[in-house]
């Protein structure tokens, strides 16, 4: 029976190790707002941490890193469409406001 607390000797992250990274990034994301940096910079940093956290979950807990390339496309297509939507609407928002 494998323990969730088992340590790994340099061969990869355990599920518990991934969780530790997720919690550390959460704490870091909260801590950036006490740093003497602009609010915009802090927001970008926090969103960057969110991207890393999402990547950790998708790759390790959802095991996407061991999946077929087709599943990467399945994820990439809607993400790309959302980004296109975002970019395409920027001029409209800028014009009205």
């Amino acid at each position: 029976m494998a323990s969730p607390l088992e340590e790994v000797s340099g061969r990869g992250l355990t599920y518990f190790g991934v969780w530790e990274w997720l919690v550390a990034l959460l704490v870091l994301g909260l801590a950036v707002f006490v740093l003497p940096i602009s609010r915009t910079a802090a927001a970008l940093l926090v969103l960057g941490f969110a991207l890393v956290k999402a990547g950790l979950v998708v790759r390790n807990y959802m095991h996407l890193k061991r999946e077929h390339l087709l599943l990467y496309f399945l994820v990439a297509v809607p993400v790309t469409l959302v980004l296109i939507l975002l970019v395409a609407l920027v001029p409209d928002i800028a014009q009205h406001h």
Binding site: A2, V8, G12, V18, Y61, H63, R66, E67, H68
Partner: peptide, 16 residues
């Protein structure tokens, strides 16, 4: 020692 990379056991793990 079971890692995220080698969860093994039961369901065949995909190999890209």
């Amino acid at each position: 020692v079971e890692t995220v990379d080698s969860p093994g056991l039961g369901i065949a793990a995909p190999n890209a």
